[in-house]
Simulated assay, not measured.
Amino acid sequence: MNSGRLRDRVALVTGAGCIGPGWGNGRAIAVRFAEEGAHVVAIDRNLASMDETLELIRQAGGKVTPYECDVTDSAAVERLVADIVARSGRIDVLVNNVGAPAPGGPVQLSEAQWGEQLELNLTTTFLMCHHVLPVMEGQAGGSIVNIASTSGIRWTGAAQVGYAAAKAGVIQFARVVAVEYASKNIRANSVVPGLLYTPMVDTTIARNQTGGDLELLLRKRKARIPLPFMGDGRDTANAALFLASDEARFITGTEIVVDGGMSARCD
């Protein structure tokens, strides 16, 4: 499985921890990148949440450096990036993966909750790029992969307007960065996953959408997916790997949708 597509590249993955066992997007991306030879810088605000991620990378013989950092804090991100550059000398890949949904439409969400959703799901992407882009520009190249959501391109079955608006912003943010920095050999793209079975489904999403009834939630989600199975974080990871690699050298300012065909349906 390891073909060395990211050999010797320094790859930052935010939200590399997970709220439970299984393949969350961040965990899967960090492990997959390490399998392909990257030196993964695994970042999460809860260091303990990365224990399984780090162990899986070590079992695969990969190289990883964990960092505890709240990427909603600009000063903390600035220190993080400076330390990584001091240790590794460069940043080749940045994966902006931090995010989580909160239920509610524009009436149900409070102003504070709206602000929190934008900060967590969109501003984190801005802050990481704000501090990493000068590094990539100085080394004459790099690849940025934003992890968005199908909530940012269509209704996905539940009102979560703050999350949807923020993820739509993540997609457009990548497009703008892609065009602005193309002449500097820096690419920016997004992966748009939807209705995946990640650990967040068992906890946050089941609680928010079906009152904790996991079986009901899974039946509803499976019914909306044309393919006969649900994907997981590994499917997001493989799309992110492609966009980060030289195989995608002429691809920038676009998206890969990873949702089993859900967003192509009319119902």
Rank of each mutant, 00 (worst) to 15 (best):
R45M: 09
N46V: 13
A48F: 15
A48P: 12
M50D: 14
D51F: 09
E52R: 14
E52K: 06
T53E: 08
T53H: 07
T53Y: 06
L54K: 02
E55I: 14
E55M: 13
L56D: 12
L56T: 02
R58I: 09
R58L: 15
Q59N: 11
Q59A: 15
A60M: 14
G61C: 09
G62S: 13
G62C: 10
G62L: 12
K63L: 08
K63E: 02
K63P: 03
V64N: 05
V64P: 02
T65C: 11
T65R: 14
T65V: 07
P66L: 02
P66I: 00
Y67P: 08
Y67N: 13
Y67H: 06
E68K: 12
E68M: 11
C69R: 03
C69W: 09
C69D: 09
D70Y: 12
D70C: 06
D70F: 08
V71I: 15
T72Y: 01
T72H: 02
S74M: 02
S74W: 01
S74N: 03
S74T: 05
A75K: 12
A75D: 14
V77K: 10
E78F: 00
L80D: 08
L80M: 07
L80S: 12
V81P: 10
A82S: 15
D83L: 10
I84E: 01
I84C: 03
I84H: 00
A86D: 15
A86C: 02
R87A: 15
R87G: 05
R87V: 03
R87L: 01
R87T: 13
G89H: 07
G89W: 07
R90K: 14
R90T: 14
I91W: 03
V93F: 12
V95D: 08
V95K: 09
N96M: 05
N96F: 00
N96C: 04
N97G: 00
V98P: 10
V98Q: 07
G99V: 10
G99N: 10
G99Y: 04
A100R: 11
A102P: 01
G104Q: 07
P106A: 06
V107S: 00
Q108K: 03
Q108E: 10
L109C: 09
L109M: 02
L109S: 11
S110T: 15
S110G: 13
E111I: 07
A112L: 05
Q113V: 05
Q113C: 06
Q113P: 11
W114M: 09
W114A: 09
G115L: 10
G115H: 08
G115N: 13
E116F: 11
E116Q: 13
E116A: 15
Q117E: 08
Q117L: 07
L118C: 15
L118M: 15
L118H: 03
E119Y: 03
N121G: 04
N121V: 14
L122D: 11
T123Y: 02
T123S: 07
T124N: 08
T124S: 10
T125G: 07
F126E: 06
F126D: 03
F126W: 10
F126C: 01
L127K: 00
C129K: 06
C129W: 03
H131E: 07
H131Q: 04
P134S: 13
P134C: 13
P134I: 14
V135R: 00
V135D: 02
M136D: 06
M136L: 04
E137A: 12
G138P: 04
G138K: 12
G138Y: 10
A140C: 11
A140Y: 07
G141S: 04
G141K: 01
S143M: 05
S143V: 13
S143C: 12
I144T: 10
